[in-house]
Design a protein around this nucleic acid. Structure first.
Ligand SMILES: [Mn+2]
Ligand SMILES: [Mn+2]
Ligand SMILES: [Zn+2]
Ligand SMILES: [Zn+2]
Lengths: 121, 121
DNA sequence: AATGATATTGATAATCATTATCATTTTATG
DNA sequence: CATAAAATGATAATGATTATCAATATCATT
């Protein structure tokens, strides 16, 4: 997976924020760089496992991707206005790994999202 | 929505940990309380908006529901066989609260779930 | 009880993101 | 160039979720 990955990432970059695989697919078509849907999915998945993009899920379960400048991190989201703050989670990473080890689990991933009310709300 | 909701919740309770809508549907069938799939979905969605159940998403996007425990805790779930271990998260609680305070957020809640492969799998 | 209004149910079909196939094309390698 | 290996993409299959809508159950009023 090599020829298409850069083009997909570039498209995601131009998209600005979050974009679904389907949206990236459509954008590439409009930009004159049509690419197979399966290839778009493969590229985004690869980028996700490489931690070069973040993945979140809409309420309906659809995956949204975003170029990830800083590496793995989590989100603090205002439940009222939607304001989102990216937060570091090294403490959580360590905790997750130790919990996994203590229970004999391998290849552990985690979902960590924080919700609350921002200052304005 | 009333007749089916209690039965769905009871089934979710018996399931122990997390269960998908499809699993609840199958369980109710086996327990001699067959209920329509659409009804199961409706009941779980209602319970979710009422905050009587938690909703998380597997890596593949499938929604998992869990009866809101009386005592707050998290889960370590095997993505292969579904084995679930309840884990303490005081370290995460502290982290979440400090992150919230640093960003001026109030009434912070969090979703923290761990996924991996258990020893058998 | 009987009637009509309203809400719930569930079998079934439709939706749609994601994944699997697999033939074709491209790239790597000697 | 010749061959093998990897990437691509058109297409079909999968499967969870949602939409329909006719049949039932529940409620309210006479
Ligand atoms: Mn993390
Ligand atoms: Mn917690
Ligand atoms: Zn806010
Ligand atoms: Zn397992």
């Amino acid at each position: 997976m090599s020829k298409s990955l850069p083009a997909v990432i570039t498209t995601l970059e131009r998209a600005g924020g979050f974009a679904s695989a389907q949206e990236v697919f459509q954008l590439m078509r409009k930009q004159g760089k049509p690419t197979g849907l399966a290839t778009v999915y493969r590229a985004l998945q690869k980028a996700a496992t490489d931690n070069t993009v973040d993945v979140i899920r809409k309420d309906d379960g659809e995956a949204l991707y975003r170029l990830c400048a800083t590496g793995h991190h989590h989100h603090l989201v205002c439940t009222s206005c939607g304001k989102t703050v990216e937060v570091e989670g090294s403490a959580v990473e360590k905790w997750a790994n130790s919990v996994a080890k203590n229970n004999g689990f391998k290849k552990v991933s985690h979902v960590v999202e924080l919700f609350g009310l921002c200052q304005k709300c």
